[in-house]
Design a protein around this nucleic acid. Structure first.
Lengths: 154, 154
DNA sequence: TCAGAAAGATCAGTGCACCGATGAAACGAA
DNA sequence: TTCGTTTCATCGGTGCACTGATCTTTCTGA
């Protein structure tokens, strides 16, 4: 009997955390638009005309996933995709009017949802929580492929 | 330009956190066995002979997902599934010898991986981090369906 | 005892997430 | 200018995750 207590495993808690978030999102924000879809819309509100790969980079989705998410948003008429006349490899993405309206509506609901999500923590704890998540995620992200760090002598 | 900074969204950070964990898991623990699969093996080491639904409850997987995960583990010969002679609705699950060996090997590697995952935090911060994740996840979990709470007068 | 409710499992459908391989366009150096 | 490399996108395959519908077995109360 060498079983481990999963409650001591950060990865297990991270998964449960995301499930909890998914639950709140679908009940409080939208059953149509998912959280990653909102992230894509949001990225394109901030920087219209990005290409697909860059959008993925901004929101933390790999090339395949971002392609699927974008395809869904286009199918629903929230996004437009046109070939870049300057560079035929890429497609430029921007929101349709409907996409802009949808994004605006969701922004409000998302803020409300985040309040509920973090309700069990007081203000100090929330700040700490966000900081810790960010640091852990960033650190692991940095281990991706040992890309030559900036500033290293060549 | 009503875009939001995703770094202030706990749900977005939770997703990135899980991606970071997935990355570390596949490189440091196993490319064959996933973290949810390990969770199922672990639950059955602790309590052999559980049925599928209960396993899902223990590890936080819904009925459909747990069925798929278990099917994969059976296909790889790590798990056995026999109809309960007492109750024909359920199947009893237990690890094969190979399953026990696999679980044992992964336990060591998992512990090492957790160290790396939490490396950016000091000991105090780790404890706080786990506590905060647990509290947020538990709270949202409690909102599932407003099941009549225990101790409520009938 | 026997009909309806409850419980365990399966199936179909959708969506996120990753990897490796492939194809097409663009860039750069010989 | 042309050939090799890089870059963007797509495709195929696998796996997690949730919902709603269905099927079978069991349980329970009239």
């Amino acid at each position: 009997m060498a079983a481990v207590d999963l409650a001591t495993h950060p990865g297990h808690l991270a998964r449960r955390l995301q499930q909890a978030h998914h639950l709140l999102w679908t009940t409080m924000v939208s059953e149509e638009i998912t959280s990653p879809q909102f992230a894509v819309l949001n990225a394109l509100v901030a920087e219209p005309g990005l290409d697909q790969r860059t959008v993925g980079e901004r929101v933390g989705l790999d090339r395949s996933t971002v392609a699927e998410v974008i395809a869904r948003l286009i199918r629903r008429g929230l996004l437009d995709k046109v070939r870049d006349p300057q560079d035929g490899r890429r497609f430029l993405l921007r929101l349709t009017d409907d996409g802009v309206r949808t994004h605006r509506g969701l922004t409000v609901r998302t803020a409300r949802m985040n309040q509920i999500f973090l309700a069990p923590l007081d203000a100090d704890e929330r700040a700490v929580f966000m900081d810790l998540m960010r640091r852990v995620a960033d650190a692991a992200e940095g281990l991706r492929d040992p890309r030559p760090a900036l500033g290293v002598p060549h």
